[in-house]
């Protein structure tokens, strides 16, 4: 009986040691080193301001804008989250892009959370938006390729609104619809940045607004799964 108890105890201690070794590889290792915002446009150079605020130990909120003489991008409450305990990260981007020039203009915005984390991950996310034509002529919102991309480092995890083409009559609003994805796996970890990219062309007087999220969660390593599977065995031995 004592021998059984000793065996059980040693087994539990061994498992505890394995947990200590495995736990960091399952969920930790991520360090967020801040927000990243970048805008390029055929309008030319603009002034980019972003204010990041640490709201909780695991989340940051970003407010800011990019303004050029005749165009602007406004964002607010863009959340960035990395929770080491749960292994869940998130980049949330709400933006309004406006072309105030007299010609069609291209805009590309990348908004990301800088840092690094060990994978593999499972990803989910969504995007929805509207297009407003604030001009007296037919308006158009287009993209050559994906309008929206979820990106881990330089690898594209998911794209939405590919080769977008929307028309709006003068002073009309067009709903761009909403699109979601889930359970997309990507591995290898993140060594630089998790980000969302928008790329589009707006006709004169056009305004596009979007709310979107890219979230990712660490997939527990196989050893961790095995560990979970072993626990009932240990318990049954201890009961015996």
């Amino acid at each position: 009986m004592n021998r059984l108890r000793q065996n059980g105890m040693s087994c539990v201690m061994a498992l505890a040691a394995v947990v200590v070794v495995l736990a960091p590889t399952a969920s930790a290792g991520f360090t967020s080193v801040g927000a990243f915002y970048s805008v390029s446009s055929s309008v030319g150079g603009g002034n980019l301001i972003n204010t990041a605020m640490d709201t909780t130990p695991v989340s940051w909120v970003n407010n800011g804008n990019w303004t050029a003489p005749s165009a602007s991008i406004e964002w607010s409450n863009n959340l960035q989250v990395w929770n080491q305990a749960t292994g869940i990260g998130m980049v949330n981007v709400n933006i309004v892009i406006r072309n105030n020039t007299a010609a069609a203009q291209d805009f590309t915005l990348v908004a990301g959370m800088d840092g690094f984390a060990s994978g593999p991950f499972t990803a989910s996310g969504s995007i929805g938006g509207q297009y407003v034509n604030g001009s007296a002529t037919l308006g158009m919102l287009t993209s050559s390729g994906p309008l929206w991309s979820a990106i881990a480092d330089s690898s594209i995890v998911n794209t939405q609104l590919n080769n977008a083409l929307f028309f709006a009559q003068p002073f009309q609003v067009v709903s761009l619809g909403s699109f979601s994805f889930s359970n997309i796996q990507f591995g290898g970890g993140i060594s630089d940045r998790a980000s969302i990219a928008f790329s589009m062309r707006l006709s004169p007087g056009g305004e596009a607004s979007f709310t979107s999220v890219f979230s990712f969660q660490v997939i527990p390593a196989p050893a961790a799964f095995a560990l979970i599977g072993l626990m009932p065995l240990v318990r049954s031995r201890r009961r015996r």
Partner: peptide
């Protein structure tokens, strides 16, 4: 007049 919008589960 007109209105359209989006709703997002921002906190997951």
């Amino acid at each position: 007049g007109q209105v359209a919008g989006t709703l997002t589960d921002a906190n997951g």
